[in-house]
Each structure stands twice: as structure tokens, then as C-alpha cells.
């Protein structure tokens, strides 16, 4: 009997210490990192309940085990066997049925939490999302804005209608807590209500190829007023851009995700940077050198494998694009401005 009392006390102490330990590590009250969406409330609540039960279950197994190792240790030279106990049916039934109740309770809570996460606001703002190797493109259909940064207003539900043009990706903003795969050939839905103004990142969570690690785009949550100002500015820019060849070229490159692999600031990504690219002399991977001119750019867009700059993947990972002559001219006009 004495053994049971000691173990009982130790189980309670260990439960509390385990939970406090998790809390110190920052893992008990909520999932990491900081929560920035309405959906994370019920998720973090469920997580906390789970951590309490997990701390208890850990103690319930770990403590009697460690206690036995100390209290019921074979002394040196002792050859005796332990007590002959074969089992106890009521005890076995108890530790089958009680966990079963826990399972039902947590499944119910899991269902409740999922319901909260999927709560639909019919007035939600719709944004189209396109995933591709290795960038995200966001389209605001009401304003004709296309961009590689996701701007969202705080405290309003947004529904992202997502699809992929190549392989499976997964849309995950850790601060929003939720994740949804982006699948070619179908449109998946991601509902989120951002609550905390700040800069975050969407990180592709489904392995999608060589540069999967870098498939991260900015997600900016603003107040409604700042968001409206941004929308107005972008809509104006989009309208102006549509009137010049460079502007149209820029829109084409954003829409097709070119800048996921070709940086505009000189950093080499999966492909060569576009900064100062026009007129530059480059070494090809067959050892020859050539000057980047219009003919080369057109050839590289239509057939990326024709001539590859030294140091970049061969065969090229870039898909062959189909553009009209006018579109090609616009894109090149835009690339020429990148100095």
C-alpha cells in the first residue's frame, strides 16, 4: 500500500513538473510561434488541453516504471524471482475503458475545434492564389492586381482560392496555424481571419523540388485603412502599367512567376538574376561566351534548354513558355529597365 501512496504523490508532482517544463519551453499554452489569426484560438486551446493530458499520461507510465526500477531492483547475488502475478481482469478493463472515454472526449473536442477553424463568413474577401516552382502569385480579382506579396486586411475573413500549375505545394503561414495543400487540376480553399498586424511569410510545406526551401513569399497584414490605401495604389499602378510595354512586361513576369527564380536585385537564385542582365557578357555551360541580347532572351524564354549560363542547373528546371511576339517584346522591354 505504501508503494501506491508514494507513486500516487510522485505522479501528481511529475504531472505538474512536466507541464511546467513544457510551459517554460513555451510549448504548453499554445503552439509556437505567436498566434496571428482568429482560427488559431480554438487550435491553441485544444493544444493546451492536450498538453495537460499528455503531461499526466507521461507521469502515469514513467513514474511507476522508474519507481519499480529503484524499489524492486534485484540485489547483488539475489537469485529469487518476483511475485507471481498474472494479471487482473478488472484492472485491464479499467485501463481499456478509461482511455476509450478520453478518446471520445478528445475526438469531440477535435471536431469542435475543426468546426471553429472552418467557420465560413459569406462576406469573405476572395483572393486567387497560384503556386508554382518556386513562388506564389496572388491575384485580387476585383482590382486587377497581380503580385508576389500577399497583403491582407486585419480582422476580416479572407478566402484564398488556390491552385498549382505544376506539382503539389502547400500553403502554410505558421502564425496563422493552418495549412492547405495546393494541388494541380483542382482549386483548394484556405479561410483565414488575420488578427495581428505584422509581416509574415507563406512557406511551402509540401516538398516541391530543388528550391522548395526557398518557396517563401511575404504575407503582410495591415489595418483596414492601410490595406485600402495599398489597394488603391496598386490598382492605379496596374492601370498605368497596362498602358506601357514595360508595365505590361512586368505584369507578365509577375503573373508567370518568373521572379521566383530570377531575382531583380542581383542575387542568384535558381536562375540568373535579371539585374543588369541586358548587354552583359556571360559564359555558357559549354564554355562559350556570348552577349545577352534580344535574340538570346527570346530563345531562352521559349526554349530554356538551348543555352544555359554556366553554374546553373542543366537540364534547366524552367518550363518552356509560350508567348506572342508582342508579349515577348514587352517582357524584354521590362528586363531592359532593370539597371
Amino acid at each position: 500500500m505504501q508503494h501506491f501512496v508514494i507513486v500516487g504523490i510522485l505522479v501528481i508532482i511529475t504531472t505538474i513538473l512536466t507541464y511546467l517544463g513544457l510551459d517554460v519551453a513555451g510549448l504548453a499554452k499554445q503552439q509556437h510561434p505567436i498566434a496571428a489569426s482568429a482560427q488559431s484560438v480554438s487550435i491553441d486551446q485544444l493544444w493546451q488541453w492536450e498538453m495537460i493530458v499528455i503531461s499526466f499520461l507521461f507521469a502515469v507510465i514513467f513514474v511507476p516504471m522508474m519507481y519499480s526500477l529503484v524499489a524492486f531492483r534485484q540485489k547483488k547475488g539475489e537469485m529469487k524471482d518476483g511475485e507471481h502475478m498474472e494479471g487482473n481482469t478488472s484492472l485491464e478493463i479499467a485501463w481499456t475503458v478509461i482511455p476509450l472515454f478520453l478518446v471520445v472526449i478528445f475526438a469531440y473536442l477535435g471536431g469542435w475545434s475543426l468546426g471553429e477553424v472552418r467557420r465560413v463568413d459569406p462576406q469573405a474577401l476572395v483572393i486567387n492564389v497560384k503556386g508554382q516552382q518556386f513562388t506564389w502569385t496572388f491575384e485580387y480579382p476585383e482590382y486587377g492586381i497581380i503580385t508576389n506579396e500577399l497583403h491582407l486586411p486585419a480582422d476580416r475573413q479572407v478566402v484564398l482560392k488556390m491552385t498549382s500549375i505544376d506539382v503539389i505545394h502547400s500553403f502554410w503561414v505558421p502564425e496563422f496555424r493552418i495549412k492547405q495543400d495546393v494541388v494541380p487540376g483542382r482549386i483548394t480553399e484556405y479561410r483565414v481571419t488575420p488578427t495581428l498586424v505584422g509581416n509574415y511569410k507563406v512557406r511551402c510545406a509540401e516538398l516541391c523540388g530543388t528550391s522548395h526551401a526557398y518557396m517563401e513569399n511575404a504575407v503582410i497584414v495591415n489595418t483596414q485603412a492601410d490595406y485600402d490605401a495599398w489597394i488603391a495604389e496598386q490598382a492605379e499602378l496596374a492601370k498605368l502599367a497596362a498602358q506601357t510595354p514595360e508595365g505590361q512586361g512586368r505584369l507578365l513576369t509577375v503573373r508567370n512567376g518568373c521572379t521566383g527564380c530570377h531575382s531583380l536585385d542581383g542575387t542568384p537564385l535558381t536562375g540568373p538574376t535579371w539585374f543588369n542582365i541586358f548587354g552583359k557578357t556571360e559564359e555558357m555551360n559549354d564554355g562559350s561566351t556570348l552577349v545577352i541580347d534580344e535574340a538570346y532572351l527570346i530563345e531562352s524564354i521559349l526554349n530554356p534548354n538551348a543555352k544555359i549560363v554556366a553554374g546553373f542547373p542543366s537540364p534547366s528546371v524552367m518550363p518552356a513558355f509560350v508567348f506572342s511576339d508582342e508579349e515577348l517584346a514587352n517582357i524584354i522591354a521590362y528586363i531592359k529597365t532593370l539597371k
Partner: peptide, 8 residues
């Protein structure tokens, strides 16, 4: 329960 009261 197997560990309990054994000679470990």
C-alpha cells in the same frame, strides 16, 4: 504492471 514488484 509487469515491472511492479519484480526482481529487476
Amino acid at each position: 504492471a509487469t515491472l511492479w514488484k519484480g526482481k529487476i
